[in-house]
Amino acid sequence: MSEAISVLNGATFDGFVSIKEAGLRGMISVRGDFAAASFTKAVSALTGADFPAVNEAKFAGDYAILWMSPDELLILCAYENAQADADKLAADLAGEHALVANVSDARALFAMSGELLREALMKLTPANVSEDAFKPGQVRRTRLAQAAAAVWMLEDGSVEIMCFRSVGDYMFKLLCNAANPGAELGL
C-alpha cells in the first residue's frame, strides 16, 4: 500500500496565532439513534469517552467523540487504527439502525493555537465565537469563508478545525491570511 500523506503534509504558519496542518488523524463517521442505549454504549466502549451532549466534544486519550447532528457523530482516533476501529464498531452495532464509515482520508485537520485565535476565527465565520458562546469542549459546525468546517475547542487558546480534504489548501490559506501578523483586530 502506498504511504498515506495528509493534505498539506504538516504545513505550519506563525502569525498572531499559530496554525498547523495537523497531519493524519483517524476519523470515523457514525450515524445512529442516540436514544438507543445499545448505540451510545457501543460508541463509548470503543472510545472510552463519555457520550457527548448537543454540540459537545468528549475526549479520552487518542479518542474523541464529536457531536455533529442529532443523529451523527464523528469519532477521532489514531490514523493507523481507524479502519480496525470502524470495523469493530460496525460489528458491535450489527443489527442496529446505524452506519459506520472510515472517512479519515476524506478530511483535513488543522490545529490553531494562540491567545487571539477568536479574532482570527471571527474574520472567517458568522458563528458567535466569543468566550460566552464558544467554550472548551464545544463543537461548532459552520463555514469558514466559503468552505464548510467544524471547529472544536480543546482548551482556551487551542482549537482544531476540520474540513473536506478537497478544500484543505484553501482552508490553510484562509487561516494564514486571517492570522497574518499585524492583522490583529485589537479588540
Binding site: 454540540n55 447532528s69 442529532p70 458568522p126 459546525r141 463555514r143
Partner: peptide, 12 residues
C-alpha cells in the same frame, strides 16, 4: 431547533 445553534442566514 435541532442543535440550538443561532445560525446566520449564510449558514442556512
Amino acid at each position: 431547533p435541532y442543535c440550538g445553534v443561532a445560525a446566520d442566514e449564510t449558514e442556512l
